[in-house]
Simulated scan of single mutants.
Amino acid sequence: MNVVEHHLAAVPLSVACLPWPDTEQGTAPNPAPVLDLQGSALGCAVFAASPLAPPGEAPQSFVSTPVLDGPQAWAEIWRTAEPLRSGRQGPLTWRASADVLFGAITLNEADFVPRDGATPLQQAAEAAYQAIFALLAAEGMPYLLRVWNYLDDINGESFGLERYRQFNIGRQDAFLASGRPITQNVPAACALGTIGGDLVVFFLAGRAAPIPVENPRQVSAYHYPREYGPRSPTFSRAAVVRLGGDGERRDVLFISGTASIVGHRTLHVGDVAAQTRETLANIAAVIDQANQIVPGAGYRLADCLYKVYVRHPADLAVIRAEIDRVLPGAPILYLQADVCRSDLLVEIEASAGHPLEFCP
């Protein structure tokens, strides 16, 4: 086990990335720690090719994304040392401390029918975010900090429009209906294509507004021109979240899904090695911006937890070789997923500034 920082119980937010126990032998590989979704767990996301549901009180999301390296399934567990309360509001489950809330919602597109020009996916996305915003208002946690979105066939076309663009319409409609900004003060986020299944959204929210971080090498996603769809994506390139009191204050950095985009154009089409290098350059630029915005934070590429989404499993060796040259030994989870543009072959997200338990 690789514990990047000890004394996990002393901070307001930490994350554990652990392999799923071997169901055939009843033991975890290596061996792995027990998946504890009781006391300190805010919530959990499970990444695997086949559905798995861990026991426990914390809200849970299953994401249909095969793991490409190591165990066949992984659990990402967000934790806190603070007292917790839990609840359910319709299809949304949540758990919260005094300052941070983890929520999870899964919707089936089949429950929605086309109406008034709105596709089922568009309606599902709007419904998911409306449920999220209603919960945050009820619980006094008004600010979305980080959102993870997963949907089937993200680059496919239906009703005359790419499905990712349908999702963006529904997401933005919910922001607008709730009176929320759709530029600048928006959460860090990602949106990936799964190998099937429902619309899965899980998120972290809080009482204090995040500090948005943009990338000087890129046009902000919420300012993309209309060639990328009727509505721009509603997310910032990264966000810094200030948690805890003076004694245990943490400036947690969430870096959104990042790819080989400079300005607003995809670079290195068809060249997965060059796309990986460009993506790492973008992450480095975001970290540099975050360090300027939050002096003294001291974020470094080597200190982040990474999830790498690979479109074609055959590209894994090339992608990993490029990443290992820049980030030897970094905690990285490799997953198979489709990226939001069909010409993008790899996407990387990251987080830093929190204690990390990573068991490869």
Rank of each mutant, 00 (worst) to 15 (best):
V3H: 07
H7W: 03
A9D: 11
P19Q: 11
E24Q: 15
G26T: 09
T27L: 12
D36P: 01
Q38M: 09
Q38Y: 06
G39Y: 00
S40H: 14
L42D: 10
G43Y: 13
G43E: 14
A58W: 14
Q60L: 14
G70C: 11
W74C: 06
W74K: 09
I77A: 14
A81L: 02
E82W: 09
E82G: 01
P83N: 01
T93H: 15
D99S: 14
V100G: 07
V100E: 03
L101S: 08
E109A: 00
P114G: 03
P120N: 08
A125L: 07
A128W: 02
Q130T: 12
F133N: 10
L136I: 09
A137M: 00
A138L: 14
M141Y: 07
M141A: 08
V147C: 07
L151F: 02
N155S: 00
S158P: 09
G160E: 06
E162I: 07
R171Y: 05
F175Q: 08
L176K: 12
L176D: 04
A191T: 01
G197W: 05
A209H: 10
P210E: 06
I211A: 06
I211K: 04
V213F: 08
R217W: 01
S220V: 04
Y222D: 13
Y222N: 13
G229S: 10
P233E: 05
F235V: 11
V240M: 02
V241T: 15
R242P: 05
R242A: 11
L243F: 11
L243A: 11
G247P: 00
V252D: 00
I261R: 02
R265E: 15
D271A: 13
I283M: 05
Q289W: 04
N291F: 13
Q292T: 01
R300A: 14
C304S: 13
L327D: 08
G329P: 10
G329V: 13
L335W: 12
R341I: 12
L345K: 15
G353I: 04
P355N: 13
E357G: 13
